[in-house]
Design a protein around this nucleic acid. Structure first.
Lengths: 194, 194
DNA sequence: GAAACAAGTCATTCCCCGTTGACATCCGCC
DNA sequence: GGCGGATGTCAACGGGGAATGACTTGTTTC
């Protein structure tokens, strides 16, 4: 639980500011995702990164800076840009039906974002990020009428699927699972199309 | 901001343990919803309740106890049971299109629950509560095939709408708003119906 | 009306955690 | 090889906030 050595295994080679910076950032993303802003402690993060807590201050300018860096690093347009109008609905539907523990990285990233969303201090920060990096791409390729309303509804459904998946870790079984995928895909597709 | 006197206006009559207990609980629900567990301070809660912080300890056995008491008090089946297969889709759609600040009580309650969801300690508690009090009623009145899959999808959409509404406080305007309501209602209705 | 108990107040303590600055160590460069 | 800047370590500080316990004030009961 405490050792995130799996993520930063071979770090103690030489003195390398970039490497430790990256290790700290990786550990921070995990801790923030798991425990939220207040529940994540700099000492623990540093320990998991194999670094000293004081370095966090030097490299990120304090806990706030670290959090913002981790947030920026968690909202990458990559995840979105690989989707298009064609594959979006089906891919998302299949992804959502799976275990919560598959695709660990993405799950952690989303846990992190959810933490940010529920913390009043960080919510505005998240808001603009989501707006720029998530909503904007979607708006681009859905087209048609009432783009704003549809994009927002699409984002809502997407978020809801993620949250529900986080809260309940037992996946659906057999025929119910198929029905879920089918209906989810149809739902998303209809939002994309018209 | 600081005075929640609107909720506990006429308390200072006589010495009444039950009344102050209730006042504290009410204030706590607001503060926890607004600021999360760590962001809510016992001194502030006590102040808003017109009580002393030490009483929280006496009555609830510490901050944890207060939080759990507030959580239990927030998960009431009332909100769901007033919905039925007929009015669900439309009511929800309209509710979601509004400002985040209308329907204060219900919004606060949900903010609180969302806080609980992101808190590792309280998440399991919330899980069973949502399952029993939210999913179960929905399952009852949707009927038809693949009830489990549909109920889950419905819950996902519902949660997503709430979260999205929390994150973005600017409501949609004019024609986009109407489009949003219409599409949301249609979406929910289709999930309820088949 | 006075004792006994409950409700409320106050000051203090204690712990946690982010931050800071001084110190040690390593690496590149001339 | 030694100088200087960059990297890493350590101990201490300080603020904030929950918890504690003694003290005061009100209320009930006989």
């Amino acid at each position: 639980m405490t050792s995130a050595a799996t993520l930063a295994p071979e770090r103690p080679r030489k003195r390398d500011a970039d490497a430790t910076r990256a290790a700290i950032l990786a550990a921070a993303k995990l801790h923030f995702a798991k425990s939220g802003y207040d529940g994540a402690f700099l000492r623990d993060i540093a320990a998991d990164a194999g670094a000293d807590a004081a370095l966090i201050n030097r490299y990120f300018g304090g806990k706030d800076g670290l959090f913002q860096a981790a947030l920026k690093d968690s909202i990458r347009p990559d995840a979105i840009s690989q989707w298009s109008r064609e594959n979006f609905a089906h891919d998302v539907a299949k992804m959502m039906a799976g275990h919560a523990h598959q695709s660990v990285e993405r799950t952690h990233a989303f846990e992190f974002l959810l933490q940010a969303a529920t913390n009043p201090a960080t919510a505005p920060l998240l808001n603009v990020a989501v707006q720029e990096r998530f909503m904007a791409p979607i708006r681009d390729w859905i087209g048609g009428d009432h783009v704003e309303a549809r994009a927002r509804l699409l984002a809502s459904v997407f978020i809801g699927l993620l949250v529900e998946r986080l809260i309940r870790d037992e996946p659906l079984s057999g025929t119910e699972r198929e029905a879920f995928i089918e209906r989810t895909a149809a739902l998303l597709q209809s939002l994309v199309d018209h």
